[in-house]
């Protein structure tokens, strides 16, 4: 489902003397449907960078990143947009939404964009918000005013409201209490069970152990010092 092959990445800082910072080289990864792979490695090894490249958020310097048959490293923006809409879900650590839009609409939006009737989309959003314990009183409010943990859960709801065949999870259990952590882990296990290919970053070793089938050490892709 997700195949990363010989991918490299470096950042060139044009406004700081054109210095180039190599981050990854020769990165490779394969995730089958129903499989959950954890990216591990020390801080700064490039876990988030690799994940962002799979999402199309960072440009890959070379190689191939094939998700659901689309090579993200080479695709047009509109192909990536279509991929993200239907195939590739993403739970980031940051919530970016239009201010003043109700939480319920924020969560239902990915479905509405896919063409699901707004009523049905809202129904599924309600069920999910209830499951991750966002109090119903908050649903009509914008998540921009929520606490960190609440925002994180809204993000998770957005990522799980549609049954994406491929999912990227960046610290999905960070800043969650024990009860909500359990809910999120069960969501991940359910996604696996329905055949989703998942790539995740989990600092929480216990959580990682419970949902992940294997680990890929991103440290192996660190470029040799020039």
């Amino acid at each position: 489902m997700i195949e990363v092959e010989n991918v490299g990445k470096s950042f060139t800082l044009h406004n700081q003397g054109g210095v180039s910072i190599p981050v990854l080289a020769g990165a490779a990864l394969r995730v089958a449907p129903g499989e959950c792979v954890a990216l591990v490695g020390p801080s700064g090894a490039g876990k988030s960078t690799l994940m962002r490249m799979i999402h199309g958020n960072y440009l890959a310097d070379g190689g191939h990143i094939v998700v659901g048959g689309v090579d993200v490293a080479l695709a047009d923006p509109r192909q990536i947009i279509a991929l993200r809409r239907a195939v590739l879900g993403h739970v980031s650590q940051f919530l970016r939404v239009v201010p003043r839009v109700p939480t319920l609409e924020v969560v239902a939006e990915p479905l509405v964009t896919l063409g699901v009737a707004p009523e049905e989309a809202r129904a599924r959003a309600r069920a999910l918000l209830a499951r991750i314990n966002i109090p119903e009183a908050l649903w009509p409010l914008s998540p921009t005013t929520f606490s960190g943990g609440e925002q994180q859960r809204v993000n998770i709801a957005r990522g799980f409201v549609h049954d994406y065949p491929a999912l990227l999870l960046d610290e999905p259990t960070a800043s969650l209490d024990a009860g909500n952590r359990e809910v999120v882990l069960s969501l991940i296990l359910e996604a696996k069970a329905r055949g989703a290919a998942i790539v995740g970053i989990f600092h929480d070793a216990d959580a990682r152990g419970r949902v992940c089938d294997r680990e890929v050490d991103v440290g192996h892709f660190t470029p040799a010092a020039a």
Binding site: T12, Y58, L59
Partner: peptide
């Protein structure tokens, strides 16, 4: 030019970075 979040989060040109 490119995907909005890609250009904003991983700008390639010096001017965009600025």
């Amino acid at each position: 030019a490119g995907l909005t979040d890609q250009v904003l989060d991983d700008p390639q040109h010096g001017y965009t970075q600025l």
